[in-house]
Design a binder for these strands. Structure first.
Length: 291
DNA sequence: CTGGTCAAC
DNA sequence: GTTGACCAG
């Protein structure tokens, strides 16, 4: 009953189309259309697609843009922590690369700047808290390793990091497993947190500021391309602002839901700046419904 | 690199 | 029980 493929092409075109798509044979068949169906496979997209919230660049040391394949961030030299980190998240970034734990100074800071090292956090009473999590970047060794550069790390109250912040990270990866992709921006604000040793403004002999607040904005999109055009008034927005205190973990992350507008008021940043103004207004006022 | 802890699932 | 993510030495 098996026919040669040329017969198949004439007699069972639908069947052959299936073969073409599933076995990636397009390149073997000259003349086959390049795009037969919409591409719904998740991709790795621009980490800053929704905008650069603080207009970070190369001129201001306290708003210094660092761009990598894994994420983009604004670094604050005076505070020795990031103002924010922005990254795209989809199943395309996921894999089975083992967590590297290779915390190290960021070699991409300008010459002459102090580069935070992992031992600056030892015995500080604060965790080396990821902004862009290791587990969001386990698709390649290079991407995972990039999350351990100390510019992506902030002094985070241990219970904050391991409990309430982690549970939101886990939830966001569940959203990805369920068929969404995400744009995530996480950052810091204010000075002074409460770690294992009590209230602290700075660690490492004053070199590193302990942020008072960690905030995060998650834009939830269906898997696809043309990112900006996929935002609508129905787009789900998850925004939280969580004090950097051990006791913050006494409540679930849903207790800290807020609006993007509130985070803009707190930080002075402008989020979703690539999105049309009218749509920004709607989405930035939104507070996610409690789950 | 190893062993230990803690919380969540 | 296992896993993930810290810590210290």
């Amino acid at each position: 009953m098996l026919r040669k493929s040329t017969n198949c092409l004439m007699r069972w075109p639908t069947f052959c189309l299936f073969i073409i798509l599933s076995a990636s044979l397009q390149g073997c068949l000259p003349g086959a259309p390049k795009t037969v169906v919409n591409n719904t496979a998740p991709t790795k997209d621009d980490n800053l697609a929704l905008g650069n919230p603080s207009q970070a660049g190369s001129s201001n040391p306290d708003n210094y843009l660092i761009t990598r394949p894994a994420y983009s961030l604004s670094y604050n030299r005076k505070r020795a922590i990031a103002n924010w980190v922005s990254w795209h998240m989809s199943a395309a970034w996921k894999g089975d690369v083992k967590r590297g734990n290779d915390f190290r100074p960021d070699p991409d800071l300008p010459a002459g700047w102090y580069a935070v090292k992992t031992s600056d956090y030892t015995n500080s009473g604060f965790d080396r808290g990821h902004l862009c999590p290791s587990d969001d970047r386990d698709g390649s060794p290079a991407d995972n390793s990039a999350t351990f550069l100390m510019t992506n790390i902030v002094p985070e109250a241990p219970r904050h990091n391991r409990e309430v912040w982690k549970s939101l990270e886990d939830y966001s990866r569940q959203l990805v497993s369920a068929g969404n992709e995400l744009y995530i921006i996480a950052g810091t604000d204010g000075t002074g947190g409460t770690g294992e040793g009590g209230q602290t403004s700075r660690i490492a002999d004053g070199k590193i500021t302990v942020p008072a607040t960690l905030w995060k904005i998650i834009v939830v999109l269906p898997v696809g391309s043309n990112d900006i055009s996929r935002l609508s008034t129905n787009t789900r927005i998850i925004a939280v602002s969580i004090p950097n205190r051990q006791t913050a973990a006494d409540k679930p992350w849903t207790a800290y839901l807020t609006s993007i507008k509130d985070i803009e008021r707190m930080t002075g940043y402008d989020f979703l700046s690539e999105v049309p103004k009218d749509l920004q207004r709607v989405l930035e006022a939104r507070i996610d419904a409690n789950l």
